[in-house]
Design a protein around this nucleic acid. Sequence first.
DNA 1: CTTGTTTGCTTAAACGTTTTACCTAATTAT
DNA 2: ATAATTAGGTAAAACGTTTAAGCAAACAAG
Lengths: 337, 337
Amino acid sequence: MEKRVSLKDIASRVGVSVALVSYVLNGKEKEMRVSAEVVAKVRQAAEEMNYEPNQIARSLRMGATKTIGLVVADISNPFFGHLARIIEDEAFKSGYTVIFGSSDEDEEKSAMVLRTLQNRQADGYIIVPSEGTTRQISGLLRKKRPVVLVDRYFPELNCSHIVLNNYQATFDATSHLIGKGCKRIALVAYRTSLIHMKERIRGYAEAMSVSGLPWEDLLIEVEFGHTQAETDNALNKFLEKNRNVDGMVFSNNGLSLGGLYYMQKYCIRVPRDLAFIGFDGGEAFDLYPTPLSYVSQPLEEMGREAVKILMDQLHGTNRITQIMLTPTLIIREASPC
Amino acid sequence: MEKRVSLKDIASRVGVSVALVSYVLNGKEKEMRVSAEVVAKVRQAAEEMNYEPNQIARSLRMGATKTIGLVVADISNPFFGHLARIIEDEAFKSGYTVIFGSSDEDEEKSAMVLRTLQNRQADGYIIVPSEGTTRQISGLLRKKRPVVLVDRYFPELNCSHIVLNNYQATFDATSHLIGKGCKRIALVAYRTSLIHMKERIRGYAEAMSVSGLPWEDLLIEVEFGHTQAETDNALNKFLEKNRNVDGMVFSNNGLSLGGLYYMQKYCIRVPRDLAFIGFDGGEAFDLYPTPLSYVSQPLEEMGREAVKILMDQLHGTNRITQIMLTPTLIIREASPC
DNA sequence: CTTGTTTGCTTAAACGTTTTACCTAATTAT
DNA sequence: ATAATTAGGTAAAACGTTTAAGCAAACAAG
């Protein structure tokens, strides 16, 4: 580890004080009326010595790290990976760096990640909150840390958020299948108290209800920490009891994918044997023998806006912004092949 | 922003010096022989006041941030997302946090990301290096920063790395197709000087050569910043000239996926019309009408070992470790449906 | 010729830790 | 009894910045 060059090094080389070097390198030479001659010398020395500011020292002094703490369920999930990327780019534009952690939808893990991010003095937080983390979030809010929740939120919490209109998402999806003539449509959802799932279930239920179709027995709720085998099992049991199901709506990307694996394993042809609507799309959806229909989220917008809201709060606004984005139903028919 | 509680706050509440509080909270009460009574009082106060150490201040003082800088091509690419996740978990076990940046395989962007990570005083770096970044890496090495390259490396650089045996990967893949009776096998690769691609091309060429098959005209090199349309175009041109091609090997996951999109668009049935071997697998590969064969990388091992090597270097070893992992060819036959 | 202003720079404190050096009182050894 | 040791603690410097405050010299205004 070679010693990094500091302001002091430049100062002593040029023969001026540390303060002066700081002023020059921060472009405050005008206000601080530094002589042109000194400015030039400092600039040159900094250049030659390859000076790079120590952000840690600066953070300590300024009480701000220019860092955003990002908590997602799992960075390796393409949905969150993509979101992270958008946030990274957007944050970078404002001079912020992202430090992230995956919560695995687990309360304890979430707490650990959040503690780490706080120790590192993140200036603000963008969080995809897991079940049971209300207190963790409200803890942040109590400390007046800027927080933006994404994808889900807690209705009882007075906190900025940006989420999909989840109700509309499944309402539209289900309605579309009904319009196509389906009558026994199942919804596959996670068993969780998180609002986004509740809303997706509600949208489905409502769509079925307004068409006078029963749905209570057609709701499949699987556990969060599911393996593919367990999902298969749940679906098997369900389909044995309900042989007349003619359509399925899946309520997030993991479940959709799990559903497709299931269909493949048990040779159920989509959409010939069963109509199918997934959530979030992806390569597997595009490349399926017959391209699959799905609910599309405006992910770019979600990420961009999340950062924008956070930046507002970081720059002093106390405003709480809660945004609901509109999903798009991507309908695809049989391919030309 | 409420004020965070510091050692000073605890000290003044308990009525002792800051130093003492630091000792107690760092478990040095024995060596520093702090009285049991004071230890208890400090502990309790810290608990009650909800003290969390300021990692920034600690970093400044200690000259180490317990931070790993991770540079990948694109965090939203599942390959890198997965890698990031493994690294995150592994780093966490050792008390390290990850700060990351996406380079987009771009020299300039890579430089910016690297500069940011350096400003933030990352203790060590795990990097998927882009083309033309040799100098950036050697700059880090010159400053004696621990660096581990992943997925690719620079032969001329004396730096730790962990990569796939890329030669073997395409050699095996190509050989397998030859064994299946293919004679006109194309390789789709990126046009780049990066070693991993060169090796993948070499493996392919060698496999063809040892079977006495010509390959020079069957190598398709596409540009890095390709759009799907451009890839389609290149493939179209190529296939028009070479109608007798009976197999294709793709040399990374992006290209494989691009290939599949192409096949779909132009109604080329895999593997009926054309044998196909992809790189890296993924959902789309599993769910393809007939599951696709691909080269599988031991991603977990790659991530875990990368962190382990870095940790060794962070703990003072000067040893340079260069590891080459063995790929597995996943062969899948037509599905039972 | 004083007084005030501008110019150009320096000093020093502060951010929250860690850690070295030092201090005093009590105890033990001589 | 005095000297040496130990127990239990404090003071202060240091990490690299930023920034408020100050200060001397030069200059302008009265």
